[in-house]
Amino acid sequence: MSALFFDDVSVWFGEGRDRVDAVRHANFRVGHGESFGLVGESGSGKSTIMRALTGLAPDWSGRMAVNGNPVRSGHRRDRNFYKSVQMVFQDPYASLHPRQSVDQVLSETLHLHGFRDIEPRIVRLLDDVGLGSAFRFRYPHQLSGGQRQRVAIARALAPEPSILLLDEPTSALDVSVQAEILNLLTDLRAEHKLTFLMVSHDLAVVAHMCERIAVMQAGEIVEVMGVDEMRALTPAHPYTRKLLQASLGYTRG
């Protein structure tokens, strides 16, 4: 049984003439405790895969399962789903409510998931993400981009999920802050035995974080490779080679 299972998954938006086939016949599995990456140019369908899984893209076909439990069609995911699967997005500015303090964000999430011992959990979550209690009563505008992303990660960890979906989690951050957040994610994965599904346009980031990587092009997974293949620049598919070449630097045309 895999942590995440995608079998012949297709996802589309709109109907008739306006229909966009965003993901076509995607197949992959992510093992328990594995970190799996999705790369490909913008619009290739990476985020859509995550959104279909979490119910944000309701039109899909095929089969998806989380820890062996089939995901049903439609918008709704039950509380059990969110107990297993949580998401962290690219933009920590957009994903936190400006009028909610860190304390409010975390206690609301903890309440929602039926926890009673809110107080000690908030302290532990802040500690886990390297913020400490000094940040507890701050509002988003009083936090730097990196600190906001730590709050977003704390919120994602609150229900004690086994799987984190990470959509460009460091793309909006300075490289110095990116290093701190990626180190934090590495530590959290080891401590909490987490499974990661991670999207990034930065191939070096994905190589650093993931053991296996799927390459997407125009809605299709064209290749799944091990990180060693990627680092050795010996992928099988010509598109992957092109992508790797582009990431090695801007070349004057």
Binding site: S176, Q178, A179, E180, L182, T186, A204, V205, H208, R231
Partner: peptide
């Protein structure tokens, strides 16, 4: 140097990234 060293690299795997 600190900024450069904090970047992950395709050609050089690291366990942890260097922090500025």
């Amino acid at each position: 140097r600190g900024l450069l060293n904090s970047l992950p690299r395709l050609d050089a795997p690291q366990k942890r990234l260097e922090v500025l």
